[in-house]
């Protein structure tokens, strides 16, 4: 698989680490326990376009938000989490 890193260009997936589904926004410090539970444990698992987090560990070390189709592996785009 090839991941289009916005900093380094298109690179082999072996240069990256992924944690899978991109988590939702982190809850506020005073959010109820249920919100934290959802944040840490619940993830989307769609058959189709999926937002994922990948880190270019053997490159620029930037965390990327990658839109990838889980059925075809087509990557629709990748953007840096911190711009």
């Amino acid at each position: 698989m090839r991941i289009p890193c916005p900093f380094c260009g298109e690179r082999d997936a072996a240069e990256f680490l992924t944690i899978g589904s991109a988590p939702p926004p982190r809850p506020a410090a005073d959010a109820p326990m249920a919100a934290w539970h959802d944040y840490v444990h619940l993830r989307d698992n769609p058959a189709g376009l999926h937002a994922e987090l990948w880190q270019h560990i053997h490159g620029c070390r930037q965390w990327l938000r990658v839109m990838r189709d889980t059925r075809t592996h087509v990557v629709a785009g990748a953007e840096a989490c911190r711009r």
Binding site: L17, R26, L53, Q55, I57, W63, A80, C81, R82, R83
Partner: peptide, 13 residues
């Protein structure tokens, strides 16, 4: 190292 980068880039950019 990855954890610190994640905390910075993803959670506290």
């Amino acid at each position: 190292m990855q954890h610190l980068e994640y905390a910075h880039q993803v959670l506290r950019p």
